[in-house]
């Protein structure tokens, strides 16, 4: 029974991965654009970071921080399409069929997106890393760091997908989710450390960031990979993964009662 359930989600995930394979060439062009964004930020940080560095970052470390985030950003944020798919489904009325399927709406959406996220890491993130490797690349000294980084990344992507799922489900009430998505993206960049180490923020913003799930998507995986922090940060990601899942499930239950199918 459990094997059949896993197989169901595996099929959905694989579908997401295979669908994306159709657009590899287009995604490679986008990887060049992402690499240019990375270049911009790298040169910016090289220009502003003092020779003696700041907090526990040297010029080299901060460059590696920016590079790492540029590689993982597609995996944990940008390539996630859950919100758009839910919005389209609500607008077209297809959501009624999706809700009637003999599987949880939440699990269905998450599984569908995880495959395409894996694709994004391999076919969008890795090429960006290769393009930016002209600035050198950091390799963790402790082999266990790789495993902790992957776990932290997997949780970060999960939190990213659930966060977008929540944005998407807001379409049950508003039909338009552009504003909600803009707010969420601003928080990922502003409090998640996507564009800069959180140590650069004013102390009050650092304290606020520590009480949000956004650092789980970028800041914690980067700190673990660069061996600036231990694997203890993973507990925070785990907490947020559970908390957001509970919240998303509750929201789905509310949305199910709220559903109004368009058209006739």
């Amino acid at each position: 029974m459990a094997a059949r359930a896993v197989r169901k989600y595996w099929v959905l995930g694989s579908k997401g991965f295979l669908q994306n394979l159709q657009y590899t060439a287009s995604h490679l062009i986008n990887s060049v654009a992402s690499a240019i964004f990375g270049l911009v930020y790298i040169y910016l940080w090289k220009a502003v970071t003092p020779v003696e560095g700041f907090a526990d970052y040297t010029v080299e470390t901060v460059v590696q921080y920016v590079m790492f985030n540029q590689v993982i950003l597609w995996f944990t944020h940008f390539a996630i399409r859950t919100h758009g798919r839910i919005r389209d489904s609500v607008r077209s009325g297809n959501v009624a069929t999706e809700l009637a399927r003999p599987m949880g709406f939440f699990a269905y959406r998450i599984a569908s997106d995880y495959g395409s996220q894996l694709y994004s890491l391999l076919f969008r993130g890795v090429p960006v890393g290769l393009l930016l490797s002209v600035f050198g690349h950091y390799l963790p000294k402790n082999p266990a760091t790789w495993a902790w980084t992957l776990l932290s990344l997997a949780l970060g992507a999960y939190i990213g997908i659930v966060s977008k799922y929540i944005v998407g489900v807001s379409a049950f009430w508003t039909t338009e989710i552009r504003t909600a998505w803009t707010v969420e993206t601003s928080l990922v960049f502003g409090l998640g450390g996507a564009s800069m180490p959180l140590e650069v923020l004013p102390p009050i913003a650092q304290r606020i960031a520590a009480f949000t799930p956004y650092p789980c998507m970028c800041y914690y995986p980067a700190r673990i990979f660069l061996e600036l922090s231990g694997p203890g940060l993973i507990w925070r990601s785990l907490f947020w993964a559970v908390a957001l899942t509970v919240f998303a499930q509750a929201l789905t239950a509310l949305a199910r009662r709220k559903l109004e199918v368009q058209g006739g």
Partner: peptide, 24 residues
Amino acid sequence: IQAVTGAIDYYFVAVILWKFKTIA
């Protein structure tokens, strides 16, 4: 909301300049 949240680009630059004073 878009005007406020979209100012993230300037927030990014302003935070850097708050910390490091100048860019080039």
